[in-house]
Amino acid sequence: MSQQPPEHTRTRYRPGALEFLALGLIVLVLGQRWLVELFDVPALQTGATVFVAIMIQATPFLLLGVVLSGAIAAFVPGSFWRRVMPKNKALAVPVAGCAGALIPGCECASVPVANGLMSKGVTPAAALAFLLSAPAINPIVMVSTFVAFPGQPELVLARFLASLATAMALGWLWLKFGKSQWLRLGPRTHLIGSNSWHTFRLTASHDFLHAGGFLVIGAMAAAAINVLVPPAWMNAVADNPLLAIGAMAALAILLSICSEADAFIAASFTEFSNTAKLTFMVVGPMVDLKLISLQAGTFGRAFAARFAPTTAVVAILMSVLFGWWLLT
């Protein structure tokens, strides 16, 4: 790429970014042998494998999410949402919460979709209820839970109800206490293209690149936890019911496992009570490292700092409540 003549400065050609990228890549390729040696330690290698695995597993789902958010931006007029969503905001929350059951994605897909909904004028409370319920109660997750816990359909029911209740509670809490300035919805005028397809493409690319970076942060954190926390620590707290629930909630947040796989992991904690396993499955799809990172990147840190802890507390309370009702 050649240097631009001065009259083109308004296109903001700033030598640096691309050249830096090219130079960096050349240095890394030359240093590959050294890099491979550096990673020839079992713990580091395991961390790298887990990191790449989370990224590879999440990429198709994140792309599904940004394709949907792009389609919402480009092809669905704002008036559509005013027609299908109840005028009453308090009523829109459960409608959006239940709509989450229809989108077969995991949590990475739901963040850009919720963002797209908000920027089209859907009330944030409803979009947030959707954000929380979509990865938790969709059909794939329900089926995988059923498979992971053979002969225990009450666990599937408890998971469905506790997750939906948490999503709706958070939507209503936002209606009552939420402040719009906590939400940073970036201006999206720069994503309007020359036609609908162009808008679709700009929105999808932007949302993917933006959220993808935050997914990397979450995946690295989860990979580090995976290597640093010996599984044996867990079984030590299994006997104390309260500690067990707290430990499973903390583990769900730290491990950042896809909602479609977490039932199998929950089932592998054989020492724990069913309520503790339920907590793992209700908290995980709604609050975890990669999700907090994605939310902070999409909606701003002020939002994530309030929303994630509140969600975690409500999710634990709902798990205990439904666990006590359905599982004991």
């Binding site: 890099l35 494998t49 790449v52 690149l209 933006h210 993808g212 970076g213 990397v216 942060i217 995946a219």
Partner: peptide, 17 residues
């Protein structure tokens, strides 16, 4: 944050865990 997406690319091409 977008730059971070280079990390999985580098991990795949250079380290191939």
């Amino acid at each position: 944050s977008t730059w971070l997406l280079l990390l999985p690319v580098l991990a795949i091409f250079l380290i191939a865990p």
